[in-house]
Design a protein around this nucleic acid. Structure first.
Lengths: 127, 127
DNA sequence: CTGCATCCGTTATGATACTG
DNA sequence: CAGTATCATAACGGATGCAG
């Protein structure tokens, strides 16, 4: 959860609900898992592992557990002989993904500009 | 939309635009600094330090330097007898803050729900 | 197939003191 | 006032092996 100390944001000065969000998606692969789950409603463990190359089982399982504890991922375990577990986004997870969309757009545009400018962004203030 | 590209193609590069954004705001205090700068166009070092209680000078300076290198913060140094340095958001930083807004809303709603439910979020799947 | 445990390296963060 | 330097620690991520 948000372990961040916040200044007195009691009024309506500035909203720092971002802390909460950042704490949840702060993991290195969290957003990728989120996105993978966004594509399909149900994903199996092995599928997720394949969709996020480079991630290890430990990290994937760990992130999955955290996301489940955070209520953005739902875990469904089928008690079958070949173990089968499916993960899905909760409603809150879907909303999180939607909230992540503008950020994705920003990052994409930014990277395009970086590649065009040779990663030397020198913009002046816009105040 | 975000069909996951393989990170192995570039050797651990960014997959979707979110990675780029997450890499920039990934610091523990980055979003708070961002928000502090969003309130006022120009902030001095000491002001930022006061606005983000708990942060140390080292971390603040470090984050500030990173954000400046990322082109989202502009540093203006006045060559005066009492040293004065002001930080401001660049246009890109402002757009980043705008992109962060939905996430802030999500986090705020979530926190309210958490506090209401006793921090035991258990939502069902919404597939 | 799913998922956990252990060890280990890297990085991020923190505390304190010091300098221009 | 605005940083920097050094040291210490904790958190995160990764590799491997094991268990149900």
């Amino acid at each position: 959860m948000a372990t961040l100390n916040r200044p007195g944001s009691d009024g309506g000065e500035h909203i720092c609900g971002i802390d909460t969000a950042m704490d949840i998606i702060g993991g290195k692969w969290k957003v990728l898992i989120l996105w993978a789950l966004h594509e399909y409603p149900h994903r199996r463990f092995g599928e997720l592992r394949r969709m996020v190359p480079g991630i290890t089982e430990k990290v994937l399982a760990s992130h999955l557990r955290e996301m489940e504890a955070d209520g953005i991922v739902d875990r469904v375990s089928y008690d079958e002989v070949p173990p089968r577990v499916e993960y899905a986004l909760t409603k809150d997870g879907i909303r999180l993904n939607d909230a992540l969309e503008p950020l994705a757009v920003w990052g994409r545009e930014r990277r395009e500009r970086e590649e065009a400018s040779g990663s030397a962004p020198s913009e002046d203030t816009a105040s």
